[in-house]
């Protein structure tokens, strides 16, 4: 395409300006994000004040959805399950990952193999993870019950026991997440000067305290990131629940997003689901801000 315009004509100047080029470059992305990001965010907010069965015309109900949420015992239960899950999953997975990364960050025979073993679950899909753990934890034929029987422990219900199911989900998701956290920590450990690592490795008393005072500050940003990010993901737990327990047994693993999914796409309470989504969004926002404030201050005070 050759426009035969005089190079200093006004039109040519306008065409060549950064405004036009900038918008031409940004437009496809901005259009996509407006249509599938910004419009839905606003629409969802509107919807949370409506009764909407996703089929017929919605009508306004004011704050009725939010008021109903306050008095919905099923929602309260789902919040409890979600928080319990998060409070166990986040510290265990992050602290465990720090330990594993510390172990893997050294010259050791077979360390490549150990690393691979830790990383492989990262690329295993959540659905596959769920199915595999369902099999491992099968109350009748499961391998884990077989190991327990060798130890003289009676067979457990695991995912079919309302008192155990959520903890099984924790174990399963830690298995799936550990590698990701370890990769982040290994990257962070690369930034720690070698002498410091060696100092913290020297045997004898004060090993832990030297690790804590010398190496840990270097890992703070990575830790903060992992805590924030795992918390956000934990609050949005869904796939593994859907594949393994569908919220059961006896609703013991019904977490917020699963409840939201049921309300929206099984009971077609679009407005109610939108209200749940906004409450979740708000909760994530508040928790993240608190974590960043607290964690950021600790990072700041330590450097």
């Amino acid at each position: 395409m050759t426009l035969s315009l005089a190079p200093d004509s006004r039109l040519r100047r306008a065409l060549g300006s950064e405004h036009l080029a900038g918008w031409a470059f940004a437009l496809p992305a901005v259009a996509l994000i407006v249509i599938f990001g910004i419009v839905p965010i606003v629409w969802s907010a509107v919807m949370s004040f409506q009764a909407n069965d996703l089929v017929s015309a919605p009508h306004w109900v004011g704050v009725a959805n939010y008021r109903a949420l306050l008095h919905d015992p099923a929602f309260a239960a789902s919040v409890r399950h979600t928080l319990l899950y998060t409070v166990i999953f986040v510290p265990l997975s992050v602290a465990g990952a720090m330990l594993v990364a510390w172990a893997l960050n050294r010259k050791l025979h077979g360390v490549r193999f150990y690393r691979l073993a830790v990383f492989v679950p990262v690329v295993t899909s959540t659905v596959a993870t769920g199915i595999i753990f369902l099999w491992l934890l099968d109350p009748v034929f499961g391998l884990v019950n077989f190991f327990l029987s060798k130890l003289g422990i009676p067979a457990q219900g695991f995912l079919s026991n309302p008192n155990q199911a959520l903890y099984c989900i924790v174990a399963m998701t830690i298995w799936g997440w550990l590698g990701f956290d370890v990769i982040i920590y290994l990257a962070a450990l690369q930034g720690v000067p070698h002498e410091l690592i060696e100092a913290a490795e020297i045997d004898g008393a004060g090993k832990w305290s030297s690790f804590r005072s010398v190496v840990l500050p270097f890992l703070r940003p990575a830790t903060l990131f992992l805590v924030v990010w795992s918390t956000i993901s934990a609050l949005q737990l869904f796939d593994e629940i859907y594949v393994t327990t569908r919220g059961g047994p006896l609703g013991s693993t019904t977490v917020v997003v699963f409840y939201l999914y049921q309300q929206a796409f099984q009971f077609f309470n679009g407005g109610y689901a939108a209200a749940i989504a906004y409450v979740l969004f708000l909760a994530i926002l508040v928790i993240t801000i608190i974590q960043l404030k607290v964690g950021g201050r600790r990072i700041y005070s330590n450097t």
Binding site: F36, G37, P40, V257, A277
Partner: peptide, 15 residues
């Protein structure tokens, strides 16, 4: 929009 969880937009996006 980066901060908004997928669950918030899922129903309108579906529509």
């Amino acid at each position: 929009t980066l901060m908004v969880p997928f669950q918030v937009v899922i129903i309108p996006t579906f529509l």
